[in-house]
């Protein structure tokens, strides 16, 4: 019962952060800021959801379940390890490609047109 509650709380928090990332990807003005939302909005939410699922898996304790929980944690580690790197690679590619950094002035120009 306690395990279920912990799992529900963690997964719901993770979903909340997913919402943050998704809304950020849509709303932010330029490529770099969208990259912020895409790269960071995912790490913590993935961590929370997968840890929640691992806790649920451990609730019914046996060796097999513990190993499956270990594998879920391994996925978590993998994503949190790979995510900053792919963020970095993509944003660097954006810089090389010549994306412009958005500033307040751009916004004013847009509204004047």
């Amino acid at each position: 019962m306690i395990v279920d509650t912990i799992c529900i709380v963690l997964v719901s928090l993770g979903l909340l952060f997913f919402v943050g990332g998704a809304v950020g990807v849509i709303r932010f003005p330029d490529f770099y800021t969208r990259m912020h939302a895409a790269g960071k909005g995912d790490t913590m939410s993935v961590f929370l959801v997968l840890v929640g699922l691992a806790v649920y898996q451990l609730g019914d304790f046996s060796l097999g379940n513990a190993l499956v929980a270990g594998k879920i944690l391994f996925i978590t580690v993998f994503i949190m390890w790979a995510s900053p790197t792919s963020t970095h690679a993509l944003i660097r590619a954006g810089l090389e490609e010549g994306q412009k950094v958005w500033t307040r002035d751009d916004k004013k120009e847009e509204s004047e047109k």
Binding site: W81, A82, P84, T85, H88, A89, R92
Partner: peptide
């Protein structure tokens, strides 16, 4: 090679 990408891939 880029240092960050290289190190991550090396460990992976």
């Amino acid at each position: 090679p880029d240092l960050i990408i290289d190190t991550t891939c090396r460990l992976m």
